[in-house]
Design a protein around this nucleic acid. Structure first.
Lengths: 228, 228
DNA sequence: TATAATTCGATAGTAATACTATTATATTTA
DNA sequence: TAAATATAATAGTATTACTATCGAATTATA
């Protein structure tokens, strides 16, 4: 499987970029360094000019890959969700027991990110931090509906729908599988943010707390047992 | 009570503004019109220059009230949460039964906003839309920790803590009262957003769905009965 | 191997943003 | 009536978020 992953590429909607950053060395440097830079400066202070300077390239060259920094954020987020989806599919592949599968899925979706050596130019841990701090900004815009129609959020939506389907598989009588699924994905990011900045608003302090909280939340809502 | 509300003022941290907008006619116009304008243009496209033009005033005059548009957003959000807190306190005042009180609280916090005639220059329905679409941007910044120390988020935190305390009052053995409280407040905004832009990710479509979803979520997690 | 196509870097330029500073005028208050 | 305060008008600055053009280097193709 290690080998399989080495040649694996996260498939991202081609409309998000002007030129595929995976297709050149410069493109990969844009992705790799933008992750470090957005993490360090925050999305607001991050500019293509600063990025160009850092990677020893030119502002206008970066515009050949992405129309603007918003689309770069969409790309990074899509990559992250696509990567998480792979983690999920590989980890739960072949599990027959739907309850155990859901439990494993919640674990994958809520635990802190670990480095993945399969993608050398991407720091997944920092990318996860970026998603926690910036993802909301990618859809809380006046252009959401247009961009949604263009398919800029498909991977994220697919992930939520996967989770929703698993919830429904465990308890088909439960009335809110999609709401619960979106609450988990979004809520997980939020709890991680609170842990770092508003400690009084969360009970999640140590590794695993978040997973335990959401697991309990889900299985208390469904007619089944987490170990059943 | 109508009368009481007429002379009521939402108390907001004085550090958020340069000059209290409630202290002058221009200040009130800034607040009232900024709500319409942020709703119409979105926070990114909203500028003090455009606002000045619309209220027949000057860009530099608005800067005498708020350092920048970020602080104006913090002010609007604080006002909204303070207003919601009043709704909550008045509605649950004197309720002896903790379970019924929690149920009522969840209802107030998750139902769609209704116009309040007590504050004539503020459109609460649009302000609620702004909070749904823009609130995350007020804390997803590199300056959160500093601004949090300055007390820019106290009202929101107090609201979450009120809810958390009520959850704990209903079931003191529940391990995640703060996480559940923050999940409800943030999740409620998120479900309303999804209802408008990503319908496939939520089961909330009609008035009351959101309240029903979160009520069930909470009471399935706690050792009690919603009507008990 | 010649040539065509692509890629990238460099430079220049623009409109808008997010302010700051100053001054003049109008209004309120002492 | 003078003093204090509030507001409007104007001007100016650094930065942002681009767009356009051009030439050099690299790569692909015939």
């Amino acid at each position: 499987m290690e080998h399989l992953l080495q040649s694996l590429k996260i498939g991202i909607n081609e409309k998000i970029y002007v030129k595929d950053p995976e297709s050149s060395d410069l493109g990969k440097r844009i992705i790799g360094e933008s992750i470090l830079m957005i993490d360090a400066l925050g999305f607001e202070s991050f500019t293509f000019k600063k990025l160009g300077l850092k990677i020893g390239s030119n502002e206008s060259s970066i515009y050949r890959y992405f129309e603007n920094k918003h689309n770069l954020l969409l790309y990074l987020a899509s990559w992250y969700w696509g990567w998480l989806e792979y983690q999920l599919v590989f980890a739960t592949n072949g599990m027959a027991d739907v309850t155990g599968k859901l439990k494993k899925t919640i674990e994958i979706l809520t635990k802190p990110t670990e480095e993945d050596s399969a993608f050398s130019h991407i720091n997944e841990v920092l990318l996860n931090k970026i998603v926690i701090n910036e993802y909301s900004k990618s859809y809380l815009t006046k252009e959401v509906d247009t961009e949604n129609k263009e398919g800029y959020f498909v991977i994220y939506k697919r992930l939520v729908n996967r989770l929703s389907a698993m919830i429904a598989a465990v308890d088909s009588a439960y009335a809110y599988p999609s709401s619960l699924a979106s609450t988990i994905l979004e809520g997980s990011l939020h709890q991680h943010f609170l842990k770092d900045h508003f400690t009084s608003l969360t009970d999640c302090r140590n590794t695993g707390d978040s997973t335990a909280y959401f697991t309990q939340l889900v299985f208390n809502s469904l007619n089944t047992e987490p170990n059943g």
